[in-house]
């Protein structure tokens, strides 16, 4: 191996080069896990029980955290916009603003971020532990492709459940907004509900759900990839877990921009 320069611009270049290589390496792993999990999704045996188990873990178990996040986001959104819109007598549009922001943007993104923290990290920790205790090698040795058995149900469950969670988030957030507008600012309940749905189109909701499915793909593939390539014992598992959350959140926010640009 070539000797590493210890100082000067060469050292900086050396460091920079290594960082670029590491980043490309990671991107390669991400796309490898993603493409192979798609390919293996269509191969037998189909493990329905494991898919269901993962759907419960990703979906059902995340309902409380998504519920609270979206409820309070809807509430604070109503609070902020009401105060602002009051200044130019546009309080009547608070319902529309809350509904549009939630369905198009906030519910899918916040659900993605919360589930990345809850589930993406757990996936990285679980697969990472399996890697360092040779359980993944044991799967290979038992003629079972770990991507098929471990990654496919997690990725599919996330793609399926994130839109479901987002619908719940949409509804809960809109109700939260209504609670504040009607309960705190004495807005006319009938008018508020009417305005909420007056400007809301089906496309607003579906585009949010498509984004949510993408975020499900991103957070599960990131979590699985980080776990799958864990090295270095317990410390490595810790690193993989943290990095899974940070990376997944970053990917979600970056892809959110581009998806929004494409979808709308």
């Amino acid at each position: 191996m070539a000797e590493r320069p210890s100082a000067g611009p060469l050292a900086w270049l050396d460091h920079f080069g290594r960082s670029v290589l590491a980043a490309l390496d990671e991107l390669g792993r991400f796309f490898y896990i993603m493409s192979s999990s798609v390919l293996w999704s269509f191969r037998r045996p189909f493990d329905g029980a494991e898919l269901l188990r993962q759907m419960v873990r990703v979906g059902w178990d995340s309902i409380p955290v998504v519920f609270l996040t979206c409820l309070f986001t809807g509430m604070v959104l109503a609070l902020q916009t009401y105060r602002g819109f009051e200044r130019f007598h546009a309080e009547g549009f608070v319902g529309s603003v809350v509904a549009l922001s939630l369905t198009r943007e906030l519910a899918p993104v916040l659900t993605g971020l919360m589930v990345a923290g809850r589930v993406g990290s757990a996936m990285a920790a679980e697969l990472g532990t399996m890697r360092v205790t040779e359980q993944i090698d044991a799967l290979y040795a038992m003629a079972t492709e770990p991507i098929h058995y471990l990654v496919v149900p997690r990725v599919n469950a996330s793609i399926l459940m994130l839109p479901v969670l987002t619908i719940i988030g949409d509804a809960v957030g809109i109700i939260g907004g209504w609670l504040i507008a009607v309960g705190l600012f004495d807005a006319n309940s009938y008018l508020y509900v009417d305005r909420t749905f007056q400007f809301l189109e089906v496309n607003d909701v579906t585009s949010g759900l498509i984004k949510a499915a993408f975020f499900g793909l991103i957070l599960s593939v990131t979590g699985c990839a980080k776990g799958f390539y864990t090295a270095g014992g317990a410390e490595g598992v810790g690193r993989a877990t943290t990095s899974a959350v940070v990376t997944a959140c970053l990917y979600i926010l970056l892809s959110d921009f581009f998806l929004t640009k494409v979808l709308f």
């Binding site: 399996m130 205790t133 040779e134 359980q135 090698d137 044991a138 040795a141 003629a143």
Partner: peptide, 13 residues
Amino acid sequence: RFGMSFQEGALFD
């Protein structure tokens, strides 16, 4: 056609 036994068992915990 292989059976492999690992150092620490490598059981699915």
